[in-house]
Simulated scan of single mutants.
Amino acid sequence: MESLMPVYRSFTFFRTVIFLSLGYISCLPLEGDPICTAEGIAQYSLVFTGKWSRTAFPKQYPVYRPPAQWSSLIAVSHSSDYHMWQEAAYASNGVREFTEKGELWTLMKEVEKAEETMQSVYGFSSTPPISSGTAQSKTEIAAHSRHSLLSFMVRIVPSPDWFVGVDSLDLCKGNQWKEEVSIDLYPYDAGTDSGFTFSSPNYATVPQETITQITASSPSHPANSFYYPRLKHLPPIARVTLTKLKRSQNVGLFGIQPNGASISNEIQMEDSDAETPLDCEVSTWSSWGLCRGKCGEVGRKIRTRYIRLNPANDGAPCPSLEEEEECEPDNCV
């Protein structure tokens, strides 16, 4: 599990600057972007719920070394001229290190640089890692009318470079802050590692590819851990719910208590109700064996195959693992 203490220490000055600014950082929206005119600072509760269960995602579901779990959640509120990540764009070095290894330092430095050079980041918050695929964590984050967009990332553990997240969700609509937003989350590939399975060894993608959403049919390869050709869409692997809090909440702009501890907790959840059917997968046929039988009579030869993946959740059963064929007996004169 990654420790967040270095992150908290590195952001001490960053938080102080934001507190002193009291939201009066000047950062105009880009031309054509909707302008948020909501008053004051909005404080939101952010609840992340994992739905990565064995019934919803039975294929190659990791049960040990390590079992299915989630990394720290990293969230920022920001203006329209900043992106933590974007679909169809290249992952930054910080995103690469976070999605491949769960390392936070470079990503946090990128956030800090965006605040210092462009004043485009307003709030920052994080949670500790979650030790189960179906657990829940909670934190809080603040937003301002000039910084009403929310982005976050959570790494899928284990995985090559897969994650879930949201890019530039607007918490404001006109002159009002949204009271509640709930979004289903689906896996993304950061485009920096070429592994197909949760436990694939590190194998860099050269040249680097752009960030893409992983679907039930893409990447179109039977070895892909999310490959479910019978499904039109993957079930959601997680969900995020944001709820606007009353201004009386005694929380800093970064969702961090005065003692420096993140406002987060881990709640064990029931397995997801979704049951994804998983068809049986078998190997290719072996070569035919020797033809056995008496000379002058019809003989029999056999070939076999083995089960590569057992079916689950009423998926298609395994076909026959042995096939027999007539032949002329070997070694007859």
Score class of each variant (00 low, 15 high):
residue 71 S to W: 05
residue 192 T to H: 05
residue 55 T to C: 03
residue 229 P to A: 12
residue 179 E to I: 12
residue 267 I to S: 05
residue 173 K to G: 01
residue 71 S to R: 04
residue 284 T to E: 15
residue 256 I to R: 14
residue 19 F to W: 05
residue 52 W to Q: 04
residue 75 A to N: 05
residue 84 M to V: 01
residue 22 L to N: 14
residue 113 K to V: 00
residue 31 E to S: 09
residue 319 P to A: 09
residue 116 E to F: 01
residue 257 Q to W: 06
residue 236 P to F: 03
residue 246 K to C: 13
residue 254 F to E: 06
residue 121 V to P: 04
residue 234 L to G: 12
residue 158 P to L: 14
residue 44 Y to C: 03
residue 221 H to N: 13
residue 36 C to N: 01
residue 87 E to G: 03
residue 25 I to L: 12
residue 191 G to F: 03
residue 323 E to S: 08
residue 93 N to Q: 11
residue 204 A to W: 07
residue 213 Q to G: 04
residue 112 E to H: 00
residue 11 F to P: 01
residue 75 A to I: 07
residue 229 P to Q: 09
residue 288 W to E: 06
residue 29 P to N: 10
residue 250 N to K: 15
residue 7 V to L: 06
residue 83 H to F: 10
residue 267 I to V: 13
residue 327 C to P: 11
residue 164 V to K: 01
residue 182 S to A: 11
residue 97 E to R: 11
residue 94 G to T: 01
residue 1 M to H: 14
residue 297 E to I: 05
residue 145 S to Q: 13
residue 178 K to G: 00
residue 191 G to S: 07
residue 41 I to E: 14
residue 162 W to P: 10
residue 323 E to G: 01
residue 184 D to Y: 01
residue 255 G to V: 03
residue 174 G to Y: 07
residue 190 A to I: 04
residue 121 V to K: 05
residue 99 T to A: 05
residue 324 E to W: 10
residue 35 I to S: 06
residue 235 P to L: 11
residue 287 S to D: 15
residue 178 K to W: 03
residue 36 C to E: 01
residue 175 N to T: 11
residue 131 S to C: 00
residue 108 M to R: 02
residue 4 L to W: 09
residue 148 S to G: 04
residue 308 R to M: 15
residue 109 K to Y: 07
residue 104 L to N: 04
residue 263 I to T: 12
residue 69 Q to G: 07
residue 200 S to M: 02
residue 243 T to R: 13
residue 3 S to A: 15
residue 72 S to T: 09
residue 317 P to N: 07
residue 59 K to E: 05
residue 122 Y to A: 10
residue 239 R to A: 14
residue 244 K to F: 03
residue 239 R to P: 08
residue 269 M to I: 01
residue 33 D to E: 15
residue 243 T to Y: 00
residue 281 E to G: 02
residue 286 S to P: 07
residue 220 S to C: 12
residue 297 E to H: 14
residue 124 F to E: 09
